[in-house]
Every structure is written in C-alpha cells, then in structure tokens.
Design a protein around this nucleic acid. Structure first.
Length: 107
DNA sequence: CCCATGACTAATT
DNA sequence: AAATTAGCCATGG
C-alpha cells in the first residue's frame, strides 16, 4: 500500500473500537506483514499528534502490559478504565476477550 | 550511508 | 512470574 508508515499506523489505530485494545504487533502485521515492525509502530504512535482523538491509548503490549504513552502510562491506564477496561497493576484483565485484531483479506 | 534511539517481542534465565 | 537479552524496524541526525 501507499505512503507514509506513520499514517498507515494511525489509520489502523482509528479502527480500534471503544472498550477494546490491540497490540503493537497486530498493527505491524496489518501493515508490513510481519510482527517485527512492532517497535517501529511504537515509534510511529509516539508521535501521534492528536492523543485521545486518535485512540492510541488502546494499543498495548503483547504480554498484556499497558506499555507506554506520550502523556504517561498512568494517563493511559485512566483512559482505558474510563472505557470500561479492567486493569490490575499494569496488566489488562480479560486480555483475550477484549483484544481487537485486524482483517487479513485473503483472495 | 552509518549510527543511535525507542509507546516492542520472543526467548531465556 | 519478574528481569535480562538479543533481534528488528522506521526515523532523524
């Protein structure tokens, strides 16, 4: 697909429904086809120009840890809880239940 | 073009 | 189960 990697990332982030989360690796796979670009995805969302508006707080680590946030991890946790997501310590509860993954069109 | 950086991961200890 | 480690990739200097 076209253009800018960061733009692709933000487009995916916008698709994450309220009350759910996805992981960096899932976005990496959706865009590049490999989980290896997960770290680059983190770099991209770190520069998110519109936190909250673009819900990058719904992107967490593969192990269920909330991960980082430009406005601070604690802010990220508050936002997620406000959306009905339960968090214990730094871990997302019911992880598998609320995990959102992207479509893999196979023709 | 080479090098460092980081909101990551998987594997290992 | 928590901490380390090496690997990977898109940026920016």
């Amino acid at each position: 697909m076209d253009g800018d990697f960061q733009e692709e990332v933000l487009n995916r982030v916008k698709q994450i429904p309220r009350g759910k989360v996805t992981i960096y690796g899932a976005i990496a796979i959706a865009i590049t086809g490999s989980v290896r670009a997960a770290r680059a995805v983190g770099q991209a969302v770190a520069k998110n120009p519109y936190p909250i508006i673009i819900p990058c707080h719904r992107v967490v680590r593969s192990d269920g840890d909330v991960g980082g946030y430009s406005l601070g991890a604690d802010k990220k946790i508050r936002l997620l809880r406000a959306e009905g997501i339960e968090i214990k310590g730094r871990k997302v509860m019911n992880f598998a239940e609320i995990l959102f993954l992207f479509e893999t069109l196979s023709f």
